[in-house]
C-alpha cells in the first residue's frame, strides 16, 4: 500500500457562499412578497398563478425563481473566488431571518389593506 500525499486542490469558498446567500435572498423574497401582496390588492390578484391555490402559488413561485436566479448569478461571479465567508454567511442568515419575519402573520397583517 503506497502512502500518497494528497495533492487535491481545495475549492475556493465562493460556491458555498453563493448558495447560502442565494438561499437568504430567496427567503427574503418570500418575506417581501407576502406583506406586499397583503398591502396591494392588484399584486395579490396578479399572484394567483394557480387559481385554486390563490396568491400563495404566485408568492412562492416568484420567491423560488428569485432564489434560483440569485444562485445562478452569485455562483457564476464567485465560483473561482474566495470571499469573506464570515460576512457573507452572516448576511445569508440575516436575510433568512428577515424572510421568517416577513412570513409571520402578525407582521404581514400590519400591511393588510382593509
Amino acid at each position: 500500500m503506497s502512502t500518497q500525499t494528497s495533492t487535491q486542490t481545495e475549492l475556493p469558498n465562493g460556491l458555498a457562499a453563493a448558495a447560502l446567500l442565494a438561499g437568504g435572498i430567496g427567503s427574503l423574497a418570500l418575506g417581501v412578497i407576502t406583506p406586499l401582496a397583503e398591502a396591494v390588492v392588484p399584486i395579490k390578484d396578479a399572484l394567483k398563478f394557480y387559481a385554486p391555490a390563490g396568491p400563495l402559488s404566485g408568492k412562492t413561485t416568484v420567491a423560488v425563481i428569485i432564489w434560483l436566479i440569485a444562485w445562478a448569478i452569485l455562483g457564476y461571479l464567485w465560483k473561482d473566488k474566495d470571499v469573506d465567508f464570515a460576512k457573507v454567511s452572516l448576511w445569508a442568515l440575516i436575510l433568512l431571518g428577515l424572510g421568517l419575519l416577513g412570513t409571520f402573520p402578525p407582521f404581514f397583517d400590519l400591511f393588510a389593506s382593509g
Binding site: 460556491l15 442565494a22 438561499g23
Partner: peptide
Amino acid sequence: WKEHVGWIAPIAATVVAYVISVY
C-alpha cells in the same frame, strides 16, 4: 403562517445538500 413559512424549508435544505455535495 404554515402555508408561507413551510416554503423556506426546501430552499434551506437544498442549499445544505448542494454545499455538502460540492465540498
